[in-house]
Each structure stands twice: as C-alpha cells, then as structure tokens.
Design a binder for these strands. Structure first.
Lengths: 199, 199
DNA sequence: TTGTATATTTACCAATTGGTCAATAACGCC
DNA sequence: GGCGTTATTGACCAATTGGTAAATATACAA
C-alpha cells in the first residue's frame, strides 16, 4: 500500500542523504540498497525505481559528496590578505580546519579513495577533483614565486602545490586513524616553520 | 574426499598468502572465505578450521601485511651518510620508492586504513604502527635540530616528524588515485627545496 | 596391521543481497 | 466524480555469504 508521493527531485535528494548517513556510518562496503531504504523510511524497490542499479546510487553519492564538501573555497577574507605567504598559511589552516569540521565527509572520501584503487570510474572522478585541488594551490604558489623569486629558486609552483596537497591528504588520513595524536596547531606550526623562513 | 595434509604453520601461511592475493586484487570488502579458499585451491571449510571466524582471518592478514611490508628500515647505507639532512633526504626518497615498489601492499594498507575508521581493533593496530613510524622520523629530526639549531629554531622534532609522515602518506594516497600525475622526482625535489635552504 | 587423532571435505543451513514484477494507491486532469 | 499516469509497495527469485556438522581419508604410533 503505497505512501505519499514526491517529485523525483525531492525523492532523489532524500535517498541520497539517507545513503550518506548509511555510508558514513557503516562504510561504503556496507552500503546496501535495503539499508538506505530503511534509513529513508522507504521501500527498497523505490530506491531501485529512482536509481536503477546500485552502482548508479554509489555514483550519485560520490557526486553528492563532492558537491556538498566545502573544499578549498578561497574566501573573500583570505583573498584580501596582503602577502602571498599569509594567504598560503591561511589556506592551509582553513583546509585543516575543514578536516575536523566535516569528519564524516572526510571519512567517506577516504572510503571512495580506497574504492578508486579498484573501480576505474571512481578513480577517474577523484583524479579530476584532485586536479582541481592541485590547480587551486598552484595559483597561490605562483603568486608566492613571483613575490619571493630568490627564496624559492630551487622549486617550481607545480612542485610546491604537489607538496601542499600531499601534506593535506596525509593529515586527513592521519587525523582519521589517530585523532588523539593529531594536533592541528603542531602540524601547522611545523609547516609554517618550514615555509616561513624562506621568505 | 580429503586431499594431502600439511602442518598448521604451512597451511596458515598458504592461506594468508591467498588472502593477500584476493584482498589486494579485489579489495578487503570483497574478501570472502570462499574466494580465499579457491585462490589456495582448498575447501572453504578448511579456512574456517584454521581461522575460526572471518574476522580472525582479516586480523591475521593485517599482521601479515605489517610484517611483510618493508617500512622505514634505516639501512646501513643510509645510516652511514655524514649529514643529518642528507640522511633525511635519503630516507624520504627511500620511502617514496617503497610506495612504487610495493604498490599492492600500499593499496591494501589504504584499504585497512579506511576500514580502521569503523573497526576499533583495526584503528588501534594501525595507530600503533603509525606511532612507530613517527618515532623513527622523530629520531632523525632530533639529530637535524642538534646539527642545525639556528635554522630550525621555529619548529620541534615532533612537529617536523609529523610533517614528514603526513607528507609520505599524502604521497601514498595520491600515487594510488592519480599515478600519471605523480612524479616522485618532482615531489622530492620540491620537498628538498623547502627543507634544504634552511640548513 | 590395527587403531587413533585430526586435517580435509562435502553437504547443508539461515541470513543477506541485488534485482524483477505485478498489484495498488496517490495524484493531476478533464 | 471518473480516468489515466506513475510513484510506491510487498512478494518473490537466484546468488552469495558466514558458519556448522557429519563423513572421510590421511598420517602416524603401537
């Protein structure tokens, strides 16, 4: 006996939010259509009706995750900082704060990351997002090189951006597995100590 | 009709190697007792006989993985390098090389890492290993601080070790998801450019 | 050879899973 | 109110899964 109807758009959003709840709580490996349906208080057949195959639901969930994760948005406030180095520091700090403020998003991203090692479409999608991330850092690094050409003579903007991205991701996985020993201030201070003296 | 017998030790090793094959090929999520048994050309009941529950097999696999991964072993050659900074560079280079030379181990580690976000015993085991890893780096960093007290005045050995570990792990996950854009030389060169000028 | 311990297997069970399908009720339209 | 469209549901299916138990062949000792 069918319940109340809803538009396709509303229903899909509702199901995707439920999928996020289940996946972030139990892991993508434990994401079942039935669990999602139960979370959304719907029948599992309805999930099939809106997403056809399970793979498409997971695909849509990855898109949803990418869209709803506030990743590397250079805010007005940060952009208005005078020195390129200060902007870099602010950006690193902002990204580290994000890891702590959206822990479920970060954890789920790690899940997809692991999934990407086996499923080509996941790998490609994340690689594309990774490229955007790297490009945003590269921009800042180019400014930095222009501002302080002598101090950073030994490196390139690409290289510096790569280091920054690697570092952020390393922090993400460590914060996940060993949160007690993860001290944002210490990590940031050390990075500042490394980059700062050059300028 | 039972096949040839084998000692418990031999058989356990055989099963664990099969488990590694399956897990590294298809992911931990797809690791089933039957798949492992098929890989080892044994009956699935025998796997149960030797490991009781599936969780124990996965547990044993994590131990096996940690034991057989050549992680951060400071070789004689590296230890004999004169400068602390040179030793650090050599160590970073060695760790990056490991990521490329044991890609299946690295991938499987990432799988366990993601698993650790949901299973306490995985998290605790990896956190312990992470602490060992960090401690090894801390040792080098302390030497570095002793050798160049003025250059690294703004940081601590703990902080520097944390940055190094974060960076290595960030490289690991990036190399996994986006191998085409992962250039060891570039990454290493940029890190050298950051740390080198200080000394 | 006979007997015993156990490593190994086949057969089986219950639960879960992705997926399909026909029945049905809610909704907009006339 | 009647009617067609379709979102929604429960029932069902086949495959896979972790796990158990009894049967059986193997290795080894007496």
């Amino acid at each position: 006996m069918p319940g109340k109807r809803a538009s396709e758009e509303v229903r899909r959003g509702q199901i995707l939010r439920a999928a996020f709840e289940v996946a972030s709580r139990e892991g993508i490996g434990s994401l079942t259509i039935r669990a999602v349906a139960a979370e959304a208080a719907l029948s599992h057949a309805l999930v099939h009706f809106h997403f056809q195959r399970k793979e498409r639901l997971v695909q849509a969930l990855l898109e949803w995750l990418i869209e709803t994760t506030s990743v590397l948005h250079v805010s007005e406030e940060v952009a208005r900082l005078p020195g390129a180095l200060d902007r870099l520091h602010a950006l690193l700090q902002q990204e580290m704060a994000r890891l702590s403020h959206q822990p479920r998003h970060t954890r789920l991203f790690l899940d997809f990351w692991a999934l990407g090692a086996r499923h080509e479409w996941v790998r490609a999608r994340i690689a594309a997002e990774l490229e955007r991330y790297r490009a945003a850092f590269r921009e800042i690094m180019e400014e930095l090189l222009r501002a302080e050409p002598r101090a950073f003579a030994a490196t390139t903007a690409d290289g510096l951006a790569a280091v920054a991205v690697s570092w952020i991701h390393g922090c993400a996985v460590q914060a996940m597995i060993d949160p007690e020993n993860f001290d944002t201030g210490e990590y940031l201070g050390a990075m500042r100590g490394l980059v700062g003296p050059l300028a």
